[in-house]
Simulated assay, not measured.
Amino acid sequence: MMVSNIERKEFISPSYKKKLSPKKMILRIFLYTFLIIHSIVVLFPVVWTIGSSLNPGNSLYSSTMFPKNPTFIHYKELFTKTDYPIWYMNTLKIAFMNMILSVILTSFTAYVLSRFKFKGKKLTLMTILVLQVFPSFLTLTAIYVLLMQLNLLNTHIGLVLFYAGAQIPGNTWVVKGYLDQIPRSLDEAARVDGASNFTTFTKIIMPLAKPIIVFLALTSFTGPWMDFIFQRLVLRTADKKTLAVGLLEMVTGQANTKFTTFAAGAILVAIPIVIIFTFIQKYIIEGLSAGAVKS
C-alpha cells in the first residue's frame, strides 16, 4: 500500500527535520578545524621521528618526511652496539615496581580518608592538598642527602621509594574523590554480614573502583618511564642507567652524534605505553558501580 507524503512526514525523526542554526554550524566548523590542527601538531613530531629513525647515517636532516632509502640498521645497532637492552629492562623494572607500590599505598590511603572519620582528618587532607602545590624536584637536594644516608644512591630501590612517595598526595585526592561516589550502603551491608574492613576493601570496594585503579596504575607506570632529572641525579654506573639517561648520552658531547639511533630508541620507548593503553582503555571508560546496588 502506498503511503502519502503527509503520512511519510509523520515517520521522519525530529532530528532530521531540525537544521543546524548558522551559529551552531560555525561552532561545529571551528571545533573540527581545531581538532584537525591539534592532531597535526601532535602527530607531526611522531611521524618526523619515525622518518628520522629510518634515515641512513647519523643526521636527522632529510629532504622528505620519510627517507628515500629507509633502513632499520639503527634499530639493530641499539641492541648490538649499545647498552639499550640494559637501559630498557632497568626502566621497565623501576616503572613496574613503582606501579605496584604506588597502587597499594595510594589505594589504602584514599580508602581510609574516604571511609573513616578520625581526629586530624581535615588537617591531613589540607596537608596533602598543599603538598601538590610544590613540584617534587624542589626536594631533590633533601632526597639526595636522605638516600646517601640510607646507602640507596645508585640503586633502583631508592628511585622507586622516591617516586611512590612523591605520587601519594596527588593520586590520593583523585582516588578518594572516586571512592566517595561508591555508596556507603555497600560497606554497611558487608559489616552486617561480618566482613572486616580489609575484606570490604578488597572484595567490594576494589572491584567497583577498577577504572580509577587502572588509571592510577597507568600514571604510576608512566611517571618513572618518562622521568629524567631524578634518574640523572641518583644513578651513576652504566649497569644502573635508564632509558632517559642512556639516550641523552648518545647526543651529548662532541663525539656523540648518533641522532638517528637516538630517534630509533625514542620510538621504542613509546611501545609499552601504547600497549598498555590498548589493553586497559575499556576499564577507564567503565561505569563506577553500575548494578552494584540492587533495587
Rank of each mutant, 00 (worst) to 15 (best):
M226N: 15
S53E: 05
S63Y: 03
G246K: 02
K68S: 13
I12Y: 06
M250N: 05
F96G: 01
S13E: 13
M97Q: 11
V192I: 15
N5S: 11
T82Q: 00
G246F: 02
K119F: 14
T260R: 00
F221Q: 05
N154I: 12
V160N: 02
F118I: 14
L20W: 10
Y144N: 09
T106D: 04
I229V: 14
T242A: 10
M148H: 09
P135W: 12
I271K: 07
V245A: 05
N5C: 00
H156L: 03
N90E: 02
H38L: 14
P56I: 08
T202Y: 14
Q132I: 07
F96L: 11
A238L: 11
T71P: 01
T139K: 08
L243N: 01
R232V: 01
K19M: 10
I285M: 09
R8W: 01
I205F: 13
L60W: 09
A217S: 12
W173C: 03
F118P: 06
Q231W: 01
E77L: 00
T237P: 06
F230Y: 14
P224S: 09
E7S: 11
T278Q: 07
P135R: 11
N256C: 06
Q132A: 01
Y178C: 01
N90T: 04
K203N: 09
L233T: 15
A164D: 05
I157F: 12
Y88I: 01
T82C: 06
V47A: 12
R28M: 09
L152N: 04
A263C: 09
F11M: 12
F96N: 00
P67W: 01
I86S: 03
I204M: 03
A110W: 09
I168V: 15
G165L: 09
E249Q: 15
L233C: 07
T141A: 10
K93Y: 09
V192F: 12
M2V: 10
T82F: 00
